[in-house]
């Protein structure tokens, strides 16, 4: 039971990029139109701030519907070599939940580390922030060993401080301001 649910989910996430994109376009465009209702619309020759957003969002919704109806498949399925590096080649069978966990781990560590960096860099200075950033993003992958990571983080921190503050003159404190 559980397995099949995971399967379904993995199917939804990976097999229907057109549908997902379509939903996004319709949702994004629709939301934008809704927000832009508050902005004066004006006319073509005397536009208000709402004219262009509404028009563009409407086109986006329309495109989203076309994509959802399968119009994008014909010329889109075969092509797209450049992004190949970033798309899956063969989907391994099942293991949906494990896969989701893997994705969750990557997202959590990378994005969490970046957001954390943003919130501490002003207060704690560049050195500590970069160190924390490196250690955390390193844990996005599996089988990380602590000691080498700490040494590596130390090296990157020193290099980053020299590069950005000494060489490029960034006006940001290296150590916490007391």
């Amino acid at each position: 039971m559980q397995l099949s649910a995971g399967n379904c989910r993995s199917k939804f996430l990976s097999l229907t990029p057109s549908l997902a994109l379509s939903l996004f376009c319709v949702g994004f465009g629709g939301g934008a139109i809704w927000i832009a209702l508050d902005y004066p619309y004006g006319t073509l020759t005397s536009m208000g701030p709402g004219f262009v957003p509404t028009a563009v969002a409407a086109i986006l919704v329309f495109l989203g519907l076309l994509i959802g109806l399968g119009f994008a498949k014909d010329d889109g399925a075969a092509a797209h070599k450049a992004a190949d590096a970033s798309t899956e080649k063969s989907e391994p069978e099942a293991r949906g939940i494990e896969r989701l966990l893997g994705t969750g781990r990557v997202m959590l560590f990378i994005l969490g580390a970046i957001v954390l960096f943003g919130s501490i860099v002003r207060g704690l200075g560049l050195a500590i922030s970069v160190f924390v950033l490196v250690v955390l993003v390193s844990y996005a992958r599996q089988r990380v060993r602590l000691m080498p990571t700490l040494v590596f983080a130390m090296a990157v921190t020193i290099a980053a401080c020299v590069l950005f503050v000494t060489l490029l003159g960034l006006e940001t404190p290296i150590l916490p301001r007391l």
């Binding site: 994109l21 376009c25 994004f28 465009g29 934008a32 832009a36 902005y39 004066p40 536009m47 208000g48 701030p49 262009v52 957003p53 563009v56 969002a57 086109i59 986006l60 495109l63 989203g64 076309l66 994509i67 119009f71 994008a72 010329d75 889109g76 092509a79 797209h80 070599k81 450049a82 992004a83």
Partner: peptide
């Protein structure tokens, strides 16, 4: 490179993102 439809959708999303901020002509926040 790929689907023109997808590229057009991306262009519209890009245009929308570009509109975030203060409208130059009216001063309206969008």
């Amino acid at each position: 490179q790929g689907s023109v439809l997808r590229a057009l959708a991306m262009i519209m999303v890009g245009l929308m993102l570009g509109m975030v901020g203060t409208d130059l002509n009216s001063g309206q926040y969008r």
